[in-house]
Every structure is written in C-alpha cells, then in structure tokens.
C-alpha cells in the first residue's frame, strides 16, 4: 500500500460537508440529555417516591447497555409503537416517514440522559447545603433557590465532567452510521470505497474529530475560567 497524501486533503474537504450532521447529533443529544438528566438527578436527590426508583432503574439500565444497543432498540422498536399508536388514533402517519436521523437523535438523547444525570447529580452534591439554607433564610422559594443559587454553582462544579460527556457524545455520534445516517465516519467510508483509499479517508476523519475535540476543550476551559472567577482553585 502506498500512502496518497493528496487524497487525505481531498477526503478532508469532502468530509467537511457532513460536519453539521455530526454536530447536530451531538448537540441535540447533549442538550436533550442534559435536560432529562437534570430532571432525573432532582428526582433522585429529592427521593421522590416511586419516580426516584424508576429513575434509578432507568439510569442503571441505560448505563448498563451499550450506546449502539439503544440505537438499534429504538430503530427496530419505535416504529412498531409509533404505527400502533397512530393506527389506534386513526392517523395516516406511518413510521416509514420518520427520517433515519430522528432515530439517532432519540436514541443518543436517551444514552446521554443517563450519563448526564450522574454528572448533574455530582454537581448538585458539590454545592454546600448552607447555600440552600441561606437562600431559604432570605425568603426564597425552592425553585428560586435552585435556579439562582444552587444550579449556577452546580453547573460550575460539573463543567469538567460536562465537557467530558460532550466529547464522548461527539465520538459516539459515529454510531449513527449503523442506521444509515451519513455523518463523518459514514461519509469517510463512502469517500474511501469509491476510491479504495481507506487509510487516507479515515485519517482525514480522525483529524476532523481531533479538531472538533480541541475546539470543545478550548471552549470548555474558557467557560470554566469565566464561570469560576469566584473560586480560588480546589485543592491547589
């Protein structure tokens, strides 16, 4: 095999066109996962009867099964449910009109939500109980205290973990490939197989992922510096 450096560049340029797909999958799953995860974390922290047990079960099942399994279960299971529901409602909507991308978004949001719930929970646990008491003592309601006092500090405390999860989901988004979503790795394979230059194409894909990851790292450290002005460093 001979390396074709020029083809790395050709592949690289072609791969750029599908970056938005990868970013969309990552952003939707991380944001959706963060919201659902926050809900799960609150249910568990406040030990809401029944719901907190369900939430705990959900987290252990999702974290106990691979991401690709979630994707395949949603891909093969959801259409049956959707069709049954829409039929019973007399709707003409059928699952075939659901785009492939939607399955990936739903499945990865579920994956992310389980991991995010633990990230958020650790952030919330890092906030001193005295902060909440002080908020109550000046007359805040629980929603006010959570929104204005607890969440901002919890978010700051969980930033390193959040960027970790974000990077994990960025790389995990490549699994969408298995349900025919053309993201970076799928595109790399298409580019490669039409030219029989797999190594070059995958190398280009690697460079793109690395570049995106570096961007996330930079962004995270900038936000961390801004959000943490009030901290005088943990143990250092």
């Amino acid at each position: 095999m001979k390396l074709d450096p020029a083809f790395i560049w050709t592949a690289f340029v072609q791969l750029l066109s599908v970056i938005p797909t990868t970013l969309l999958i990552t952003a939707v799953s991380v944001l959706g996962g963060f919201l659902i995860g926050t809900g799960i974390a609150l249910l568990r922290l406040y030990r809401v009867p029944v719901l907190s047990q369900i939430a705990a079960g959900y987290v252990t099942f999702i974290r106990g099964t691979p991401m690709i399994t979630h994707l395949l279960l949603i891909y093969f299971g959801l259409p049956a449910i959707v069709d049954a529901v829409s039929e019973s409602l007399g709707s003409s909507f059928r699952s075939v009109s659901i785009p492939y991308l939607a399955f990936a978004l739903i499945a990865f949001t579920i994956t992310a939500s389980a991991y995010m719930s633990e990230v958020v929970r650790s952030g919330l646990l890092a906030v001193n109980r005295g902060q909440l008491e002080a908020a109550y003592s000046i007359g805040m309601t629980t929603p006010q205290a959570l929104r204005r006092i607890v969440f901002p500090q919890a978010l700051a405390a969980s930033l390193p973990n959040l960027s970790n999860s974000l990077i994990g989901m960025l790389h995990g988004s490549t699994l969408a490939f298995t349900v025919s979503v053309v993201e970076i790795m799928a595109k790399a394979q298409i580019v490669a197989s039409t030219n029989w230059k797999f190594f070059e194409a995958y190398l280009a894909a690697a460079l793109i992922f690395w570049g995106l990851t570096v961007l996330i790292e930079q962004l995270a450290s900038r936000i961390e510096r801004r959000i943490n002005v009030y901290n005088r460093g943990g143990v250092a």
Partner: peptide, 14 residues
C-alpha cells in the same frame, strides 16, 4: 426573619 450563620453561608458565586 433573616439569619446570620455560623459559617457565613454567603452565596459563593456572587
């Protein structure tokens, strides 16, 4: 009422 705490409990991010 209002309270002054032993460990101050100032809002750390403010």
């Amino acid at each position: 009422s209002a309270m002054v705490f032993q460990h101050y409990n100032l809002f750390r991010h403010k």
